[in-house]
Amino acid sequence: MPPCATPGGAARFGWDRRSMAPGSMRAPDGALVGWGVAIGAYKAATAAAVARLRLSAGGEVRLSVGGHEMGQGMRNAIAAVLQRRLGVGPAQMVLEIGSTGTTPQHLTAGSWGTATTVPAADAACEALLQALDTLPAGSSLMERLRAAGRPFLEVEVSRRAPGQPETVMGRLTNGLPAAAGPAYPDFVSFSHVAHFVEVRVEPATRRIRVPRVVSVADCGRVVSPRTAASQLRGGVVWGIGAALREVSEVDARHGGFLNADLAEYVMPVHADVGVIEVDFVDKPDPQLNGPGVKGLGEVAMVGVAPAIANAVHHATGRRPRTLPIRVEDLL
């Protein structure tokens, strides 16, 4: 694979300035400084999908595809495909996702949302452009429709993961899971990430802070850079919570949870989160699908907690073996 166009995570973090010996780095205020790194991998899964695309002579582009917007930016990614392939702006688009009244729906989970909907949308655009080639020439897509006396043009495509049989579409239409990967007939595909973390440990109280993180992910082609960066930052925050804050305390006598509300279940807040720099390799994986996209949702968090644990060891010489890392583990 060609090298990343931007500086790698180690260079951005300044890893070459790391002193190897545990406890050998100090901040101006006397805090112990630790630098740690860890990598993560998560399956590059994808699911069967049906996409229906309609272009009206009035300029509206309506796409229906199976997927669910949970805040991860799926609509932005689909809109980016339509804008790139058809040259239409967001104001002309109507995106129907998560609606059982349009196309068969599939659960969005397991980091296969983008890898499922984006290739299906791309294939629908290609089918629409091929259908338009049979119409009279025009200065725009809508002009070609009007010249042909057509109020609209609609196409429907079905897409499966590599190696999935045609019968998987029956599972999709019956509301059953229809995902595949990371193992495909001819290859295996994963998303990858590397997290570089700095921690500061207060010498007396052993309080741990995370002032700086640099994370670089390989999730194939990045379709929507802004929402992808937001997902990666969010994954880092999740990892900070897993490493230093979050735990379900269980009553050993009765099996109940002792901190089953937000007042006692400790999560990272704004003051716990320092500077998080993110970047992407942004190289397509053409074996998985045409656009070369892979999942980012889960892999963003994988490796954050180990990187923090490694940084804590570098700062203190103590090797934490359980999560979350507590003050008493370092005393």
Rank of each mutant, 00 (worst) to 15 (best):
T103S: 02
L55F: 03
L129A: 08
A305D: 06
V94C: 05
T114S: 13
T100I: 05
L129G: 07
N289A: 07
A315P: 02
V250E: 14
S56P: 00
D16K: 14
R12D: 08
I97W: 04
T167F: 00
F280G: 00
S56C: 14
P177W: 09
H270I: 07
A147T: 01
K283H: 15
Q287F: 04
A178E: 01
N174P: 00
R209S: 15
A161D: 01
A21N: 02
L55E: 01
S140N: 05
Q130E: 15
T173S: 11
F257Y: 13
M25R: 10
G234F: 11
G297F: 01
L86R: 09
I208R: 01
N310I: 08
G220H: 01
M70Q: 10
R144D: 05
W15M: 13
T173Q: 13
G235S: 07
G36A: 11
R207H: 10
M169C: 05
R245K: 15
I240H: 02
P225E: 03
G255P: 04
D16S: 15
G87C: 12
A45K: 07
V213L: 01
S56G: 11
V94S: 13
N259C: 10
I276D: 01
Q72D: 02
A91K: 10
I240C: 05
V269S: 11
P286D: 10
M25Q: 11
A48N: 05
S19C: 12
G255L: 09
F13R: 08
P28Q: 05
V197S: 06
V293L: 04
I276R: 08
E126S: 08
E249H: 14
P286A: 14
Q83D: 14
K294L: 10
A263V: 06
T108V: 03
G40Y: 02
R245D: 14
R12G: 08
F257D: 04
V327P: 03
R62Q: 14
A91H: 08
E69G: 12
G181R: 03
A315T: 07
V197C: 12
Y265L: 11
T117H: 02
R62D: 13
P119D: 05
P324H: 12
A180K: 11
G235P: 13
G66E: 07
P7G: 05
G290K: 09
A131D: 00
L107C: 07
G36R: 10
R150I: 00
A179F: 13
L331M: 12
D122C: 06
